[in-house]
Design a protein around this nucleic acid. Structure first.
Lengths: 350, 350
DNA sequence: GCAGAAATGAGGAACGTACCTCAAAAATGG
DNA sequence: CCATTTTTGAGGTACGTTCCTCATTTCTGC
């Protein structure tokens, strides 16, 4: 009737409590045969470890370090705020978070932060960073000290990171491409692609996915070379105005990163607001406003709240050497249009 | 440095442990002045009750009853399976689930199930059911006995349910409408709407949202009256074939419920597969296959795993009289196309 | 078959909270 | 000021697990 405990397992397996404990916590000094016997008793009784009691007894609390670039990107800010909320919630289950910011372009500052993290103080690290040799080395060091490392938002596939929390950028680009193609049904003409920078792995992969789909399925639409703005509105104005003037047949605009406000300003000035199909990434106050105003047709997004909670949960699971619930941690590539825009209030309630 | 405990509160407030306990658990026999003193100490030290320890001490485990119609709907089956997975996970935090099925049309069977639930045995109830007087009465009885009730998937707004876990059907319909309109860019003609039954609140609201958008924004598309199939493929065949023959100008098909296989069969027989814009609801093996095959342009869905976990979490929070993390429990209206189709494996790993 | 190593048992303390009892102190009313 | 009631204190046990020590048993190789 009632839930079986370790005592029941001990009785069922015909061993002592100490042995059950050794098996359950993978401590050394138990014969293979005994391990099997205990595991069979566990299976027979359907024993599930009471995590609450376990954590209580461990008396552990996990300090997780999260590293985020200190750019003025709205997505990063939203994520930072989501992380703080997630941390407040996670505090109830003995997980605390140390949120560190590094200047966006200063990878040595990042490396310095990572170098300062010690296994006796930090139980796990999540980071959003570009994949460079410096970062790779730092991650290798952390892993070698047994600190789990999770890539956040942007994957670091060629490092030894334990897990990636975020969406598949290539698939996100394909999704953007498909919507662009379908929204441009019956039209032929050119598609302008705007990015902050093509240095970041995300942008490259999105663009690759986008191009694939356009080429395969929407041959009447021609995708132009990427305009890189490096965050400067003027850069976007100049390059895009030139394209719009000369090309003549621009039907769609794909924003790989930010620049929604600058784009709206330019189009408004030209009296062309709402004339193109515009697709962007990430749900921020700017993209939200643009969706509501009808200047933006769709946003491909990942849920920052989910991202934040997932990062902390995965780190905790790794720290406790527990399995991960893949279904729960898998982030969806969300398609947001005006009609399914979630309510603004992202302020968690406590 | 370390988290404050009840002992710290007692010291800080200058009272005994017993008094702190009385205040924290709202037990009687404490002067207002003392209550204030304790609460101030709590605030000063930033004390947060260790829920794990509290639950352990309480020795409580919550049995939640979940009621689902026993239809042959794939969505219901997927949800049932997601619920079982969620329950396995929730077992780790002392929450178990009793999954009850009732014959889809037999509301008296449902009422009988609900009537059998007693407060001493069941800590909460989640149910997916139409809103009828019988159901309303049963819910009122449960609530009056202090059992929290959560509407699952389909809301019961005129009952005293504590919470609704699911998406806003009206907004989902608007989302479907917008996509339909945009995917039909440049076309004019008719849109066929197919439903299992228009008795269910979900279908009605979806249709209402869909119509609103089509009327407002896509006047060149004319939405035809709903075809009700009551789950019978022949009904769909007859009614739809007639429409396709006579109307001539059918450009889009909107499936409010199931019927994807029957639709594909009909269109294939007529050699018209892929000629219309088709939009449906819920991600099931059938809609998944149709998306992959390209017979279905988009699916408006809610995540069954999220739905299941959310239902159990909300019930638990209600049972413990704890606040709900709105951000985490808010379900997104998902737009799924072939490119952002999540991987099939919905089998949780344990 | 014996020494040494490996495996197991027995028992206890601790984690933070809930909940109980009984006694002592403080407040209250007359 | 006394009797009565209300409030508070002190101390204990329990929840299920972790982790520790020390003793005992069982294996292993020679």
């Amino acid at each position: 009737m009632t839930r079986p405990t370790v005592i029941d397992i001990a009785r069922e397996a015909g061993v002592s409590l100490a042995t059950v404990d050794r098996v359950l916590n993978a401590r050394p000094g138990v014969r293979a045969k005994t391990i099997t016997a205990v595991n069979e008793a566990v299976a027979r009784l359907g024993y599930v470890r009471d995590i609450a009691a376990a954590n209580l007894a461990r008396g552990r609390s996990y300090r997780m370090a999260v590293l985020l670039p200190d750019s003025d990107s709205q997505f990063t800010e939203t994520l930072a705020s989501a992380l703080r909320d997630a941390a407040t919630l996670a505090a109830a289950s003995r997980t605390e978070m140390l949120l560190l910011r590094y200047p966006a372009e200063d990878l040595h500052a990042l490396a310095a932060h990572l170098a300062a993290l010690q296994a006796d103080d930090i139980a796990g690290v999540a980071l959003m960073a570009p994949e460079t040799p410096v970062v790779r080395d730092a991650i290798r060091r952390l892993r070698s000290e047994g600190i789990p490392v999770v890539a956040l938002g942007s994957d670091l596939p060629n490092t030894a990171r334990d897990h990636f929390v975020g969406i598949d950028s290539h698939a996100a680009g394909r999704t953007a491409g498909t919507l662009m193609g379908k929204f441009c049904r019956g039209l032929s003409g050119q598609i302008v692609v705007v990015a902050d920078s093509m240095q970041l792995r995300d942008s490259i992969e999105r663009r690759r996915g986008f191009d694939e789909v356009m080429l395969e399925r929407f041959p009447s639409l021609k995708v132009l070379p990427t305009i890189e703005t490096h965050g400067r509105a003027e850069a976007l104005h100049e390059a895009l105005a030139a394209r719009l003037d000369t090309a003549g047949g621009v039907v769609g605009i794909y924003l790989l990163g930010s620049g929604h406000r600058a784009l709206a300003a330019l189009l408004r000035a030209r009296g062309e607001l709402g004339r193109h199909v515009v697709i962007g990434h990430e749900l921020t106050p700017h993209t939200r406003a643009a969706l509501l105003a009808g200047h933006l047709d769709a946003v491909i997004a990942q849920n920052p709240g989910h991202l934040a909670r997932s990062a902390l949960r995965v780190l905790r699971a790794k720290a406790e050497r527990q399995p991960i619930d893949e279904g729960q941690e898998r982030l969806r590539i969300e398609v947001v249009i005006r009609e399914n825009l979630p309510p603004e209030s992202y302020t968690a309630t406590f």
